[in-house]
Amino acid sequence: MDYLNDLESVWGMDDTPEKVKVLERIIAGADLYNNIEDGIEAREMLIDTCLTVGLPKKQLQAFSWLIKKWEDVDSDYYIDTDNLFWQYKWICYYVPTFDEVSKAQIDGLLNDMKEKFEQQNYSLRPYYKVCTLAAMSMGDVEKAKELFEKWSTTKGDYLNDCPACETSVQVHYFCFIQDYETAEKTAKPIIEGKQLCAKVPHFTYGDMALAYLTLGNEKMAQECFDKGYPLVEKQSSLLTPLGQLLKYLVLTNQTEKAREVINTNLEIVLQAKNGLDRLIFLQAAYPLFDREKEADLIEMTKALTAKFDARNGNNYYQDLLNK
């Protein structure tokens, strides 16, 4: 029962791919010996670790097991509902970013989240937030606007995200609908360092580099890149802002720096399990790909673009590629 030794040691480990491997060994051992309690503990830790490391598919697998145990009314094992439902937000955020997940599956998961939050008398504000993000991931502008209104007007509770995260996603939304003036105003407390958290301002710098550029504030756009890139370089859980910052370099003709960013980060991008993260980076890099030497990357970008648009039922990502 070596997995028990792993369970003792894993608490002192940083969130790294190695920790994920250790937790997976613990889960395998706990399942082999039908040790439900340790299986619960290891999966809860795995979900948290994968959020940092950037392995959302492993998160989903662990969460699916936990939710089934939580739903088992005959189970004698305790699963913290608040913690589980907090993690539900993460899962629903990431699922639409997988190209292999169908729209029906996404809708099914979101509906299940709503039902469970209502049954437990939680606020639906987090539900409307992840639905807004899902609509954005699927390029549905009108639906995103409708859901953003519900998110904004629904009172939150203690399962609401921190102020910095709320602001960051609002900025992302305003950039998505191309309301860059409102994005600039909304981002002000983050840009000024008044709102911070584990992944803010990391995400905001990516959005605002492009927003400031569109608004003609080249100084602030460059400042967002200069401050943002060191935060996201070679970070597998931060590929979306990395792709946005790369796009900024391409749009401002900083070709040498853009190629450096591509070369430095391409390996982790290609290893990413999250198809949308890969697509955002590849589309940003697309204008610089050598049509002969990097034909495989060109075809990969086109194929992934077509796959997401087919799933989403629109031409949103093809239109972005054509710009």
Rank of each mutant, 00 (worst) to 15 (best):
D2T: 11
D2K: 14
L4H: 13
V10F: 15
P17N: 09
V22N: 05
L23N: 00
E24R: 10
E24P: 12
I27S: 02
G29D: 03
L32E: 14
N34M: 12
E37R: 11
D38T: 12
E41L: 09
A42L: 08
E44H: 07
E44A: 00
I47F: 05
T49R: 00
V53Q: 01
V53G: 05
L55S: 01
K57T: 12
Q59V: 00
L60A: 08
A62N: 02
L66K: 00
L66Q: 01
K69T: 13
V73Q: 13
S75A: 10
D82R: 11
D82V: 13
W86C: 01
Q87L: 06
Y88L: 09
I91N: 03
P96T: 04
V101F: 03
V101K: 02
K103Y: 15
A104P: 01
N111I: 02
N111V: 02
D112T: 12
D112M: 09
D112W: 15
S123C: 07
S123G: 09
V130P: 04
A134E: 02
M136W: 01
V141L: 08
K143Q: 15
A144N: 00
A144L: 05
F148H: 07
S152L: 09
S152F: 10
T154C: 10
T154P: 11
D157M: 04
L159H: 06
L159P: 11
N160F: 13
N160H: 12
D161F: 15
P163M: 07
A164L: 08
V169Y: 11
Q178R: 14
D179A: 11
E184Q: 11
K185L: 15
A187Q: 03
A187F: 07
K188I: 12
I191Y: 04
G193T: 03
Q195I: 02
C197Q: 04
A198C: 09
K199I: 15
K199F: 15
F203C: 06
T204M: 06
T204Q: 06
T204K: 04
G206V: 01
D207C: 11
L210K: 00
Y212S: 01
Y212V: 06
L213C: 02
T214V: 10
E218P: 00
A221E: 01
E223Y: 13
K227Y: 15
L231E: 13
V232C: 09
Q235Y: 11
L242V: 04
L246P: 10
V250L: 08
Q254V: 06
E256R: 12
A258C: 09
E260M: 11
E260P: 04
N263A: 08
L266T: 07
E267D: 15
L270K: 10
L270W: 06
D277K: 03
L279I: 08
Q283C: 06
Q283D: 10
A285I: 08
P287H: 07
D290F: 06
D290G: 05
E292F: 12
E294H: 08
E294F: 05
D296P: 02
D296T: 09
L297D: 06
M300R: 12
M300S: 08
M300Y: 13
A303H: 14
A306N: 14
K307N: 13
F308Y: 05
A310Q: 14
N314F: 14
Y316Q: 00
Y317K: 05
D319K: 12
L320N: 06
L321C: 12
N322R: 13
K323M: 14
